[in-house]
């Protein structure tokens, strides 16, 4: 069994990977993002990015976390009921800038970390959903 094939079991998932759009997806279910990050670190996976989707109406957000193992892109979607999720920055340094960017662009709180402005300039307010301005 390859490392990737063993991961669903290690992550406590009863469903296998699903290949879609060039990515192997796994529904993390109740798994906390920090537990996922710890398993990815243990598997020596390379963190790629987090992609944010604002869902229609008041459905909140979906964050897709991506790691790479031996050239295979892995995806883990997390549905946010509110606007906060645990930060993984202290476990995965590579997630720093993307967490800051998502906080600035979508007003999502990554709990357990502090922010400094990334893309915004002095005088701007971090944590404002910039997409709301696009909609107007």
């Amino acid at each position: 069994m390859s490392l990737i094939e063993t991961l669903p079991h290690k992550l406590g998932s009863s469903v296998p990977w699903m290949e879609k759009g060039g990515v192997l997806w796994l529904d993390p279910g109740p798994l906390a993002v920090r537990k996922l990050c710890a398993e990815m670190n243990a598997a020596k996976a390379r963190f790629i990015t987090i992609t944010t989707y604002q869902l229609p109406g008041t459905e909140g957000f979906r964050l897709e976390y991506h790691w790479d193992i031996e050239g295979q892109l892995l995806g883990f979607p997390f549905k946010l009921e509110g606007n906060s999720i645990d930060s993984i920055y202290d476990m995965c340094e590579a997630a720093d800038w993307i967490e800051r960017e998502i906080h600035e662009e979508y007003a999502i709180e990554f709990t357990g970390r502090e922010y400094e402005p990334l893309l915004l300039r002095a005088g701007d307010t971090p944590g404002v959903n910039l997409r709301e301005e696009v909609k107007k």
């Binding site: 879609k20 060039g22 790629i48 897709e64 991506h66 892109l73 995806g75």
Partner: peptide
């Protein structure tokens, strides 16, 4: 749906 693509640019992925 969502599709993802990766390419090796001069500076990296």
């Amino acid at each position: 749906g969502t599709a993802t693509s990766r390419v090796e640019a001069p500076r990296g992925e």
